[in-house]
């Protein structure tokens, strides 16, 4: 198999196999905090940061667990690392920007149960990425997540001015938009062919 270039890994994680729109990871915050552009951007930033840290930790943990021959501890140790990183980010944001802390609300601690982050850690282990590759992969995944969130927020802000039947309002409308976004992201599939 051909060695994947770092650029390809980045494009693959952010556009071709976008974590939200192609893998269905991180749907909860995608539906929950995509109402406003500003919160969406910051949420994307927070998730990307947690992804970077936990991806690096997952690389180290995987090496350690392989060394001591205990692969069944993989899941448990990954989730512990992610939970503590999220705790760290939460304390940091609370200290630096109480307004943002309130805006993100319950979705900040819920980053722990954001499948995109655990999914990223598991995928990079399955693909056997090295340290730099993992880092780029996490960066791509975070960028892709932020991109999807921001696109969605932009569309929803516009739709506030549209007349929508009551039955369709809320989650249904968001899901329909997500479906169309997902269709359009399929156009990026051509990028991966060469």
């Amino acid at each position: 198999m051909k060695e994947e270039s770092l650029w390809y890994i980045f494009i693959n994680a952010s556009l071709i196999n976008n974590f939200v729109l192609a893998y269905f990871l991180g749907i909860c915050p995608f539906l929950g905090v995509s109402g406003k552009m500003e919160t969406a951007t910051k949420m994307g930033g927070a998730v990307t940061f947690v992804m970077l840290i936990s991806s690096m930790c997952a690389y180290g943990l995987h090496a350690l667990l392989t060394a001591i021959n205990a692969p069944f501890l993989q899941l448990i140790s990954y989730i512990v690392v992610i939970a503590s990183t999220v705790q760290l980010v939460e304390m940091f944001i609370k200290k630096m920007s109480p307004a943002l802390f309130r805006a993100l609300g319950i979705f900040l601690p819920l980053i722990t149960t954001n499948c995109a982050i655990l999914g990223l850690a598991l995928f990079q282990t399955n693909k056997g990425y090295g340290f730099f590759e993992s880092f780029i992969y996490a960066l791509g995944a975070g960028t892709g997540f932020t991109l999807a969130l921001v696109l969605m927020a932009g569309l929803r802000e516009q739709l506030n001015f549209a007349e929508v039947p009551n039955v369709v309002k809320g989650t249904v409308l968001t899901l329909l938009i997500a479906g169309i976004l997902s269709l359009s992201f399929m156009g990026f599939a051509g990028l991966g062919s060469q």
Partner: peptide, 19 residues
Amino acid sequence: ILPAGGFFTLAVWLLIFNA
């Protein structure tokens, strides 16, 4: 079968429930 179909199907189910 593609991801987009998942979004659409769930949207339609929710729509039925809402209606």
